[in-house]
Amino acid sequence: MSSLVQPTTQDTPAAPMQRRAKKKSLRHDNRAGYLFIAPWLIGFFGFTLLPMAASLVLAFTDYRLTAAPHFVGLDNFQTMFLQDPRYWKSVRATFFYVFTAVPLRLIFALGLALLLNNTRRGISAYRAAFYVPSIVGASVAVAIMWRQLFGTEGIVNALLWLFGIPPTSWIGNPNTGIWTLILLAVWQFGSPMLIFLAGLKQIPQELYESASIDGANAWPQFINITIPMLSPVILFNLVLQMISGFLVFTQAFLITEGGPLDTTLFYALYLYQRAFVTFQMGYSSAMAWVLLLIIAVFTALTFKFSSNWVFYEEKRD
């Protein structure tokens, strides 16, 4: 400990130690870490957590933006579940949409991914072309176009006329209105298709080769190799598409405007009407929290049941 008088002997071991300490600081540094993530952290508290808490409080009030809020207990939820038939219509329309549009979109995405998973000439052009609807699908321009395609004077009717089928209003008919929106969702299968394609490229080719040697042909190979190996990607796509399906808004707002007879009054659309047309901020906050719960429950259920069909490579041994 009396090394004060021996500067030379202390110099040599201290230098690497100092460097090690510095190296450690590069890896572990609270101040720098929080400084770099500060923008996100501030945003998380200011634009996510705080509004969420406020929304939860508002859900138990009758706030209408013009007058001060009053605490009303569970009234909003009671009205929603027991006295508001439009609420249940919106739930039904949303569930119908999610459970038809999402599976159909994924089936098309997977089918096309399987078809395009080869090295033929022009594959990348096809891949790009099928992706185009996904990049424009959310736009107002496409909504305007879709409305005209399925309108009374639209191209779909003109096509059916050639086969002698009389024109109808696809958007104005309560039985078909929602299907025009489902078709629009399926039309945008490009982005899950690209994710499937990336997943297919990860499957080791040896698996198919050894299956071929064992005499397994295309269909057993698909069922026993492709589907299990791709199942984590299928799960990923399923969860992602399901969440965005529950939140469907813009195209229904623009194309069918919730009609006809509220058959396309999706949850987010009805919530918007309550919040920004009649300015019932309390009621719409309550609706938003129920929506969050619905999404959370369905995501959790999907993950829970995924253990039955999703195959992870670690389990192979």
Binding site: F47, P51, M52, S55, A268, S285, A288, L291, L292
Partner: peptide, 12 residues
């Protein structure tokens, strides 16, 4: 997270 749970307080 559905943005709807933050939307209304943000607007206010």
């Amino acid at each position: 997270l559905p943005s709807q749970v933050q939307l209304i307080p943000q607007y206010i």
